[in-house]
Design a protein around this nucleic acid. Structure first.
Lengths: 130, 130
DNA sequence: TTGACTTATATCCTAAAAGGATATAGATTA
DNA sequence: TAATCTATATCCTTTTAGGATATAAGTCAA
């Protein structure tokens, strides 16, 4: 087992945020879509490795609809089996905006955390004044 | 209820990453410390609002020790009741470094997500070519 | 010297979320 | 008509968060 792999499996204990909800909201902010398509399209945001398990996506979509952030309707037109097409509601758009606000703060926190780590690490390996 | 408050309570459904584990590892990267002190000191990293509930911190510390990322010993010297003092192990330092790697990727993802939101939003409100 | 407060750790319970497995079913095509 | 693809739905188990509460030692002032 490589050092790299060891590190990653060990740190796997700590939970990683995958931002499923904001990814779905963003996927719909660009226009109406449906579960099967979103599973593929939200990968682009880079928050999860590979595709999300379908059960997770459909569960999230139902929950978003319960909370009024998206609305849905069956679309039987077109090829293939019927799709449940989701649309972002005005409330959903507000919530997405709040997520973006939060993400901006998070970027600041993460950036300063990283800098802090580097500075302590540097001071440890290069003690300029011992 | 203000628009702002409404937004925030609605988006409260989505889980927010609070980075408890990396915060604790970072708190110990700077030097040995103990639960009660860490509860206060890790606030500085900005990942949680207010102080973390003690139960959460002690649970995390025990778990980190189980996984060999920190070690502990009782310190009865000094004022006040005995403290269980934690120290970061070499493994803990590796995991912290892996967290920092992950955080750098996360900053990139978040930044591009934010930009994407702004560009779609702009195109929507200012349709230059309709 | 005892009662209140602070420091410090530990345990327990409940609700929510993740993760994954599996079921259902229509449409397409070989 | 059987296999495959598209698409959604449901179920179960484990993990985590969040919070409440218990325990106990040390400090300090009346």
């Amino acid at each position: 087992m490589s050092e790299r792999t060891k590190r990653e499996s060990r740190s796997g204990q700590g939970r990683r945020e995958r931002y499923v909800q904001p990814s779905l909201l963003m996927g719909l902010f660009r226009g109406p879509s449906y579960g099967y398509e979103l599973i593929k399209s939200i990968q682009e945001f880079g928050f999860m490795k590979g595709q999300a398990p379908p059960g997770m996506i459909y569960r999230h979509l139902r929950q978003l609809e319960e909370n009024g952030l998206v609305s849905s309707s069956w679309e039987t037109e077109g090829v293939g089996p019927a799709k449940r097409v989701y649309r972002l509601t005005p409330e959903g758009e507000e919530v997405l905006a709040a997520w973006v606000d939060h993400m901006e703060k998070q970027v600041e926190n993460l950036t300063s955390f990283i800098k802090h780590f580097r500075s302590v690490h540097k001071a440890r390996t290069k003690p300029s004044a011992s």
